[in-house]
């Protein structure tokens, strides 16, 4: 028997609606699931495929030297000895990107706090747009700016005065400071810092924005000043997202190639010095790939790519772990 409300209506829903045919019902669903699953799997395959190619191509070098010895080997001589160790580049990468993050983190956090909490809406919008603009500048353009503007300026107003001061007052420091020519580790680090500020800022701002209104109000209601609200309620709540964002920015710094290759001076032998030339894993790959005629040389560059891949993996997993570990409730950004 029909339910009461359908009794009098002339057309019931069942009469009006056309039942979809069996092909639509069964096959359509199947096709959709298969497409989605295939696309999902293809991403995983792509990542695994890249790792495999790097490992396969770098296999010659890794077999020749052994993975661990390759990573900590300090000699990189493609001309005479054909001995390849990645340590100078490993060290150069970690040193430049870590210091870049240390330089960038606090200013970026300050900008994020300012634009999320303090700035009037129009100014916050302007800051956001400019940050996105900086992030969108091609790194080769930043490299050119570094070569023609930043590096000469740093050389003349910082490196040279410091070097001259050290010459008379602290001669022991000179080997650590290195040649103040303007293109070297310090310049690369500063440019890296500039390049990751947009990422650190954007991710920190997302984390700050995700702090619930109730948390802020609870702190206001206790008689907090603006800064105290940040310190008591907002930053602790957002710390997971902020830290994870910083680590992700570190990942970007590690992988940055062009601007670094243009500014770091490119020197393949340790020791590196603060002002002096150095190299990173991406920079050595981009500099030597075209000229690598020996198969062992080419394979060594591929192996460096593989190590870089592993570092990127570790950095991303760390960021995800920190985000999960430190985040509260909705504070996650990943």
């Amino acid at each position: 028997m029909k339910p009461e409300h359908q009794k009098d209506s002339k057309t019931s829903v069942n009469e009006v609606q056309k039942l979809p045919n069996i092909i639509y019902l069964w096959l359509g669903d199947k096709i959709f699931s298969v497409v989605v699953v295939l696309l999902g799997i293809s991403i995983i395959l792509l990542a695994l495929g890249m790792a495999w190619v790097l490992l396969d191509e770098g296999g010659l070098a890794l077999r020749e030297f052994g993975f661990f010895s390759f990573v900590i080997g300090t000699t990189w001589d493609p001309a005479v000895q054909l001995a390849f160790g990645a340590w100078p580049f490993f060290f150069g990468t970690i040193a430049t990107s870590t210091f870049a993050l240390l330089i960038a983190f606090f200013p970026a956090l300050a900008v994020a706090i300012f634009s999320a909490e303090y700035a009037p809406r129009w100014l916050a919008g302007m800051i956001d747009n400019l940050i996105q603009l900086i992030a969108a500048i091609p790194s080769v353009v930043i490299g050119i700016w570094g070569i023609f503007v930043l590096a000469p300026w740093l050389r003349d107003s910082i490196y040279m005065p410091v070097y001259v001061w050290a010459e008379t007052n602290a001669a022991g420091l000179l080997p650590i400071l290195g040649n103040p020519i303007g293109y070297g580790m310090a310049t690369a680090t500063i440019v890296l810092a500039l390049m990751i500020v947009p990422y650190t800022t954007a991710l920190a701002k997302d984390a700050i924005k995700s702090v619930p209104k109730e948390q802020r109000e609870a702190s206001w209601a206790l008689g907090s000043t603006r800064w105290e609200v940040m310190r008591m309620a907002v930053l602790p709540y957002a710390r997971g997202g902020i830290m994870a964002g910083a680590i992700l920015s570190l990942g970007r710094a590690i992988g940055e190639t062009m601007a670094v290759a243009m500014l770091i001076g490119n020197k393949n032998t340790l020791p590196f010095s603060i002002f002096g030339a150095g190299a990173t894993m991406p920079s050595v790959i981009v500099n030597e790939f075209r000229e690598a005629v020996e198969s062992l040389h080419l394979s060594s560059l591929m192996a460096i790519g593989f190590v870089l891949f592993l570092i990127a993996l570790v950095v991303n997993l760390t960021a995800a772990y920190i985000n999960r570990k430190l985040s509260i409730g909705g504070g996650q950004i990943l």
Binding site: Q215, S219, L222, G223, S224, M232, A233, P236, I328, G329
Partner: peptide, 27 residues
């Protein structure tokens, strides 16, 4: 004013990263 006029909200709002003790003495 907010130190003289306290407020309790609809939903409990403990500061999640702080201990019970630190929450009470936060103000």
């Amino acid at each position: 004013i907010r130190r003289k006029v306290g407020m309790v909200f609809q939903k409990p709002t403990p500061f999640p990263t702080m201990s019970i003790y630190d929450n009470v003495v936060a103000g």
